[in-house]
């Protein structure tokens, strides 16, 4: 009786919800759940074999070379996030504070900083790949033309420099997003606080430290969580600039490239049988890492906001 009454009153809402629910289930929930189930089976090439429980997960964590590749890739994702986070919370924040002053010509600068973010990772990767070529790339030629030819190195080809180079390109292309969001956050802070600060005799630094920063903290946290998710899912840039094996010698390997290689076989070696079960286990690990960190990040952020 109760249910029918509810249905009569709210039934029309279902019609609005249904298309979204169907599309989301078919294209998000279903593939996600199947890949979860893939990780629990043994696979021979493309054929699903028997149910093996958590064996694939154990393999990723304990069996060489999967374990070595896994921790290696996880470390690189952490470096990806760490450096990008460091740059956006210093340089990015500073740029946002400066741009908030709205001096003449700043609209142009704002657009310039944001532009790389609008380019696809494939375009960014390809352009930097050309520019960083040690024999004829723009960076090498610029260095040579000012007499710094000795500094030219195969940046993307040396195990010692490849990761840092890709991370910096990554940070460059991502930076526009945090700057834009920080800027919006700063502009949302009521002028009255600053005016009250002036009455109390704050200088510029104090205004930033005691007004801008605390009020911007929830925004910074939110952007940091997004940066974390983006960097732990990172794939395209390394795939385009370096290839699926994270060369040289796995020095730019990420969880996503490791997953891709394991699932489909290393495409750069022109044919290696894939391991779909083990690859799915890697994907589940990625989901767990990203999900857990994001969950606690969001909860922490809520606490900060409640504190304000």
């Amino acid at each position: 009786m109760h249910a029918r009454k509810w249905l009569r009153r709210h039934g029309h809402l279902l019609i609005f919800l249904l298309p979204g629910l169907i599309l989301y289930s078919a294209f998000m929930a279903y593939p996600l759940l199947t890949s979860l189930s893939y990780s629990l089976y043994d696979w021979r090439g493309l054929l699903r074999q028997e149910f093996v429980g958590f064996e694939n997960f154990v393999t990723v964590l304990t069996r060489w070379p999967y374990n070595e590749r896994f921790w290696n890739a996880l470390g690189h994702n952490a470096i990806f996030f760490g450096i990008t986070f460091a740059i956006q919370s210093t340089l990015g924040l500073a740029l946002a504070v400066l741009l908030a002053r709205k001096w003449r010509g700043f609209a142009l600068l704002q657009a310039t900083y944001f532009m790389p973010f609008t380019l696809s990772a494939v375009v960014v990767g390809f352009l930097w790949l050309l520019m960083l070529n040690p024999n004829w790339g723009a960076v090498a030629q610029a260095l040579r033309s000012v007499g710094l030819g000795d500094m030219v190195q195969p940046w993307l080809g040396q195990p010692a420099t490849a990761l840092l180079t890709v991370v910096l390109v990554n940070a460059w292309s991502w930076l526009g997003f945090p700057v834009l969001v920080f800027l919006a956050g700063i502009q949302g802070i009521p002028r009255e606080y600053y005016e009250a600060g002036i009455v109390d005799g704050t200088n510029g630094w104090q205004a930033f430290r005691f007004i801008t920063l605390p009020l911007l903290l929830p925004t910074i946290m939110m952007v940091s969580i997004l940066t974390f998710i983006y960097n732990f899912n990172a794939f395209e840039l390394v795939f385009v600039m370096q290839g699926a094996s994270g060369p040289p010698a796995y020095s730019t390997d990420l969880l996503a490239t490791f997953f891709y290689r394991t699932a489909f076989g290393d495409p750069t070696t022109g044919g290696e049988p894939g391991q779909i079960g083990i690859a799915s286990a890697i994907a589940v690990f990625m989901l767990i890492i990203i999900g857990t960190v994001s969950y606690f990040g969001v909860r922490y952020n809520q606490r900060i906001q409640e504190g304000i």
Binding site: P65, S245, Y250, G265, T268, G270, E272
Partner: peptide, 10 residues
């Protein structure tokens, strides 16, 4: 997997 080619190349 890992194929000899993957090992050798990397």
């Amino acid at each position: 997997q890992p194929s000899g080619s993957t090992l050798l190349q990397n």
